[in-house]
């Protein structure tokens, strides 16, 4: 009896102590872009991080997906008007919306992924995609037997150009004569959600001689993986670890650890140490990495792995300068 009482008391205490910190009252709003949380890629990584924060930090998470590009501002503003403490906008398309809404609600905290918004209440999470792309470009060139590799991007926007430039540079560092076929899925945000078209593009690249294709096209990437399956050639995944989608055919994945970055942002906002400004994630702090797991271990030989690791170290040490599209264009 006494024990039960003690038990109940300790639970009550535990609950009240979290209440004192306000953890379960702390509301986080996550606004995903059009890919949606099950794109197995970019948004999936963001959602994983926020969900982990909800589980481990016991905060109150609400996730919404924008139906179209005009919905961001409305979604962000309605969250800011309600009692959300931290509002996270995922994706470069939300830059303007975050800029506007964060200025209107200076007391609320905002996070933007993949774009910079300079305001004291906004934390910008930037990833050095070019570093990771360089690394997977090198891996592609090491695995390619035909001397031709492919790149399928979603839209031709600076962010994806950054992937492309890094990828090509990485491939050329291994084989200066390698040819890189480059294609883009579309011109509107439908490009991120058009697997049939991405598959058609990948089929043409494979038929054109490419034997590895790097897909940086959100939910459209699954079309590239389907083509890899049909043609029994390799593909490279992006943002999340996508090796599991077609085991044995996905050479590796260029991971953007949005999950880690967003978890950390939630944590800092919860503990009151949230600061505005830009945080950079790259190979050096494991914010960017290539995926190695049981699905692709047979594709990456120990010899290859050694080379990849040495390239990675050289980038971190600054011995290899990876071209950055953002800096090229000023």
């Amino acid at each position: 009896m006494k024990f039960t009482k003690f038990f109940a008391f300790s639970i009550a205490f535990a609950l009240s102590s979290t209440n004192a910190r306000g953890a379960d009252e702390f509301k986080v709003g996550l606004v995903l872009d059009r890919g949606g949380r099950d794109d197995k890629s970019f948004n999936a990584a963001a959602f994983r991080g926020a969900n982990q924060a909800q589980m481990q930090l016991h905060l109150n998470l609400k996730t919404v997906e924008a139906a179209d590009d005009n919905a961001y501002e409305t979604l962000l503003r309605s969250m800011a008007q309600k009692d959300f403490d931290l509002i996270i906008g995922v994706g470069v398309a939300q830059q303007e919306a975050i800029k506007k809404v964060s200025a209107q609600f200076p007391k609320k905290h905002f996070v933007i992924v993949d774009a910079e918004v300079k305001a004291p209440n906004v934390k910008s999470l930037m990833f050095k995609e070019h570093e990771g792309s360089y690394l997977v470009g090198a891996i592609a060139a090491m695995s390619s037997k035909s001397g031709k590799i492919g790149f399928v991007g979603g839209m031709s926007i600076p962010l994806i150009k950054r992937f492309e430039l890094g990828y090509e540079a990485g491939a050329k560092s291994v084989n200066p004569n390698i040819a890189v076929l480059k294609n883009y899925v579309g011109m509107t945000s439908e490009a991120w959600n058009n697997p049939p078209k991405a598959k058609e593009i990948a089929m043409q690249q494979y038929q054109g001689g490419a034997d590895v294709i790097f897909a940086a096209a959100g939910a459209s990437s699954s079309g590239v993986f389907d083509a890899a399956e049909d043609k029994k050639k390799y593909a490279i995944g992006v943002d999340s670890n996508q090796n599991w989608i077609k085991p044995g055919l996905i050479l590796t994945s260029m991971m953007k650890r949005l999950d880690v970055a967003i978890f950390q942002a939630c944590q800092s906002a919860l503990t009151g140490s949230f600061k505005g400004g830009t945080e950079n994630f790259g190979l050096s702090n494991n914010g960017i990495d290539y995926a190695l797991d049981e699905f692709n271990e047979k594709l990456i030989s120990p010899d290859m792995k050694k080379k990849i690791e040495s390239i990675k170290e050289a980038i971190i040490a600054g011995k290899i300068k990876v071209p950055d599209y953002y800096k090229q264009k000023g």
Partner: peptide, 17 residues
């Protein structure tokens, strides 16, 4: 045809116009 031949699943708004 889009979801069972030209790709391998349904994706949101995959008809794309």
């Amino acid at each position: 045809t889009l979801s069972t031949m030209l790709s391998s699943a349904y994706a949101r708004n995959m008809t794309a116009g």
